[in-house]
Amino acid sequence: MPKKYRHPMLDAELNTKRLKNEVRTMGRAQKSGVRIPCIYFVDKDNHLMFMERVDGLTLNSYLIYLEEKTESGRLISGEMSKNHDRNSAHACFLNSALYDQQRVYKMLENMTSLGITTKDIARKLGLIIAKLHKSSLVHGDLTTSNIMLTAKDLDIVLIDFGLGMTSSQVECYAVDLYVLERAFSATHPGFIEMYQQILEAYNEAGMKKVIRRLDDVRLRGRKKISIG
């Protein structure tokens, strides 16, 4: 989307560079074995990218669903719990995603029949992130909203590489993990154990240097928050 506060020529140049970078990063991720949406066409003139529609749910939506299920003691229905805060993130999710109930149910049935747990998802995700970093790729915005679970085969798909880049710096990989950690602590505090399982799988993939650097990144992050 054009930025009105920028000079048109500068805006077009920046958008072109970002589009090229995103396409390039996604292509390299795919070659490394990380599943991403298939790119069908890139319109450089209008700065548009046409991609495969991933049939599934974001990890963010799925975890919020599980949280709601745990809190209410039942599967999502079309009604709100009487004690439910309508202004909460859960209420927003329910209001916006009720149309997706059947897909959620089907995915849960598939996971149950296959014996798949959140621990299985966490370990698989940890290995995928390790594979991405071993290929000198950084996602740049690794949140649960940019991780999808496919409805058909419950595979993991990474999306939105707009801030992605190529880097061989351990620091960049650690920041990727820290962004994901913040997403879990802020949005899914009840699933912190799942994040730890992601780190365990990542560490087992031979990424111990990154795990050690993550402690430094956390410390800087806490200092920044305390200073304001």
Rank of each mutant, 00 (worst) to 15 (best):
194 M>P: 00
222 R>E: 11
89 A>V: 10
173 Y>G: 05
64 I>A: 07
6 R>G: 02
123 R>C: 02
110 N>Q: 09
171 E>Y: 12
12 A>N: 02
96 S>Q: 15
148 M>Q: 07
101 Q>P: 01
70 T>S: 12
205 A>E: 02
164 G>F: 02
26 M>H: 01
78 G>L: 09
95 N>H: 12
181 E>V: 08
98 L>H: 09
117 T>C: 08
39 I>W: 04
114 L>Y: 08
130 A>Q: 03
214 L>T: 04
192 I>M: 15
29 A>G: 05
219 L>A: 15
135 S>N: 15
23 V>N: 09
37 P>W: 03
160 D>I: 00
98 L>Q: 08
5 Y>I: 00
118 T>M: 10
115 G>A: 02
43 D>E: 03
74 R>F: 00
159 I>G: 06
94 L>D: 01
128 I>C: 07
207 M>L: 09
219 L>G: 06
217 V>F: 01
10 L>N: 08
54 V>A: 03
60 N>V: 00
119 K>H: 10
120 D>K: 00
165 M>L: 12
181 E>N: 10
59 L>C: 05
166 T>N: 11
7 H>L: 08
98 L>C: 08
32 S>I: 04
213 R>V: 10
111 M>F: 09
170 V>I: 15
183 A>C: 15
73 G>H: 06
163 L>G: 01
123 R>T: 05
155 D>L: 06
125 L>N: 05
8 P>D: 05
169 Q>D: 12
154 L>Y: 07
217 V>C: 01
126 G>E: 07
197 Q>E: 14
137 L>M: 02
24 R>W: 11
46 N>G: 08
200 E>R: 12
160 D>E: 06
208 K>D: 13
39 I>T: 07
204 E>K: 13
224 K>Q: 14
215 D>N: 12
123 R>K: 14
214 L>W: 10
105 Y>L: 13
192 I>H: 07
154 L>Q: 10
18 R>K: 13
32 S>M: 06
19 L>P: 03
65 Y>N: 07
178 Y>W: 11
113 S>A: 14
132 L>I: 03
167 S>V: 09
193 E>M: 09
54 V>N: 04
14 L>N: 04
94 L>W: 02
223 K>N: 07
205 A>K: 10
79 E>D: 13
38 C>W: 15
210 V>K: 10
146 N>S: 03
16 T>N: 10
215 D>I: 11
28 R>I: 02
188 H>W: 03
137 L>T: 04
172 C>H: 14
88 S>E: 06
125 L>I: 00
152 K>A: 12
45 D>V: 11
163 L>Y: 05
38 C>N: 12
30 Q>V: 07
166 T>H: 14
141 D>Y: 05
168 S>Y: 09
157 V>D: 03
40 Y>A: 05
114 L>H: 13
89 A>L: 14
35 R>V: 11
204 E>R: 11
180 L>D: 03
4 K>E: 09
214 L>N: 06
96 S>I: 07
226 S>F: 10
14 L>M: 04
21 N>S: 12
35 R>A: 11
19 L>T: 02
132 L>T: 03
181 E>C: 10
91 A>N: 01
175 V>G: 00
226 S>P: 02
30 Q>Y: 14
37 P>T: 05
19 L>F: 01
139 H>T: 06
154 L>G: 02
126 G>P: 05
121 I>V: 13
99 Y>R: 10
99 Y>H: 13
43 D>Y: 05
49 M>T: 03
99 Y>K: 13
158 L>K: 00
118 T>W: 02
11 D>N: 09
